[in-house]
């Protein structure tokens, strides 16, 4: 049975992570920032699964489940904040929320 090199799996995870990161840094729309964060979390999960698969163990998958809960909690709070944000600023521009500048 043909095998997938572990490097490729990890590189894919790194690539997805960095793409998500670029999304966080570039987008001003907080909805997209949240999406990009989801991408990054997902990429981290992918890396765990690849690691787990390398040794044929369940631990990697357990970690993904925990990441899933984090992502779920994060998105619930995050989206509630987005609604609040929009109600307050009438915009989704993350740069509007700069009250705490020094």
């Amino acid at each position: 049975m043909a095998t997938i090199p572990i490097h490729y799996g990890l590189l894919l995870a790194a690539l997805l992570f960095v793409v998500g990161l670029v999304g966080v840094l570039v987008r001003r729309n907080i909805l997209f920032i949240l999406m990009s964060i989801e991408i990054m979390l997902n990429a981290a999960g992918l890396a765990f699964v690849v690691g787990g698969a390398r040794w044929g163990r369940a631990d990697g998958q357990v970690m993904v489940i925990i990441i899933l809960t984090v992502a779920a909690a994060e998105v619930a709070v995050g989206l509630a904040l987005v609604l609040r944000f929009h109600g307050w600023f009438k915009s989704l521009d993350a740069d509007r929320a700069s009250e705490m500048r020094g």
């Binding site: 966080v24 840094l25 001003r28 920032i33 993350a94 740069d95 929320a97 700069s98 009250e99 705490m100 500048r101 020094g102």
Partner: peptide, 8 residues
């Protein structure tokens, strides 16, 4: 000055 208040 580095405290711009901008999340990004």
């Amino acid at each position: 000055r580095t405290q711009t208040g901008l999340v990004r």
